[in-house]
């Protein structure tokens, strides 16, 4: 187990290093100098040089990469070109909207998918199964941001149960924040939940066809008991994979959904930064997103070992 975890941790670190290098390289090849972009065409050479020094653009590339990575490890993401304020602080504020939104949606998606998938698998071929599968087929096809717009139209504009957008901030109370994130989280969660429910169902059905299920039936377990005691845990392995993948979709989805609900999250920050050519912010946000995806995949790898003793043994 320890060996397995260490191995995964090592690959996590390598992934992070390579990912940061890739991001840095891509942004580095960007045409144009941020400093001259900020000062306009008529900038004086000495002001330009001063700004370049202030932004840390005057050091060689390789050194700049290490400064950037080294800074991030210590929580220093550099200074925004456009706002001249620390990037870390800007990201931290936004992160407290985007991350809770993605996690909220992940919770909802799982909460929808598990019962739906288990129900459909246990009643395979019945009307209930057909209805659930039809609904998920539709759910998979719906773009989350469009679904969000429809939700706003129905629940905010017509029924007035929620506000159409905006975020009061956590300091104004926990439940106010949760309420503001509920509609966005539902819009994000439904399509992902539909996918997860389908995976859950097919994974369970695969397991129900396995030899050890027949053995369990021969022991005297009922169909229902074999599903809960024997199929479910084995079926979790592919389901965990998808949950891990979904986190990255939800984080990316959160960035899009924030636009529908005018939420002050990473999405708004990153799109503003793109138009302001505030590349250091873009770079840092992207790195943060990639970092969360890699870390979540690491967590999923560890979860496999909890579910599957065969992985634990390979230590």
């Amino acid at each position: 187990m320890v060996r397995y975890a260490l191995k995964r941790a090592l690959s996590l670190v390598i992934s992070l290093i390579v990912a940061s290098a890739v991001i840095f390289l891509v942004v580095e090849v960007a045409p144009g100098d941020p400093a001259s972009f900020m000062l306009g065409l008529n900038a004086q050479p000495d002001t330009l040089a001063a700004l370049r020094a202030e932004l840390g653009l005057d050091v060689p590339r390789l050194q700049r990469y290490f400064l950037w990575v080294g800074g991030m490890v210590q929580g220093d993401f550099g200074i925004s070109y456009a706002y001249r304020s620390p990037v870390a602080q800007m990201i931290a504020e936004r992160m407290w909207v985007s991350l809770p939104l993605a996690l909220y949606a992940l919770g909802l998606s799982t909460a929808i998918a598990f019962p739906a998938g288990i129900y459909a698998a246990s009643r395979r071929g019945t009307l209930g199964d057909t209805v659930v599968m039809g609904a998920t087929q539709l759910g998979v096809a719906v773009p989350n941001f469009w679904f969000a717009m429809i939700c706003v139209l129905i629940f905010a504009i017509n029924l007035r149960w929620f506000s159409a957008g905006g975020f009061p901030g956590w300091e104004k109370g926990f439940w106010g924040g949760v309420k503001a994130l509920t509609l966005p989280a539902i819009a994000l969660a439904l399509p992902q939940g539909a996918i997860l429910a389908r995976v859950m169902r097919s994974s369970l059905l695969d397991m129900l066809g396995e030899d050890f299920i027949r053995t369990a039936r021969a022991k005297g377990l009922s169909r229902r008991q074999t599903l809960w005691r024997h199929a479910l845990r084995n079926a979790m392995i592919p389901v965990l994979t998808i949950i891990g993948l979904q986190f990255s979709f939800l984080l990316a989805g959160a960035i899009i959904i924030e636009q529908v609900f005018f939420l002050p999250g990473l999405g708004r920050l990153v799109f503003q930064s793109i138009s302001a050519r505030d590349l250091i912010v873009v770079e840092s946000v992207v790195m943060l997103l990639v970092f969360s995806v890699i870390v979540v995949n690491f967590a999923v790898d560890l979860a496999y070992a909890v579910v599957d003793p065969r992985l634990r043994a390979r230590t």
């Binding site: 396995e210 030899d211 050890f212 027949r214 053995t215 579910v307 599957d308 003793p309 065969r310």
Partner: peptide, 11 residues
């Protein structure tokens, strides 16, 4: 059953 390799629940 015939196939002992798959007749037991692996987890």
């Amino acid at each position: 059953f015939q196939e002992p390799m798959t007749a037991l629940n692996p987890v």
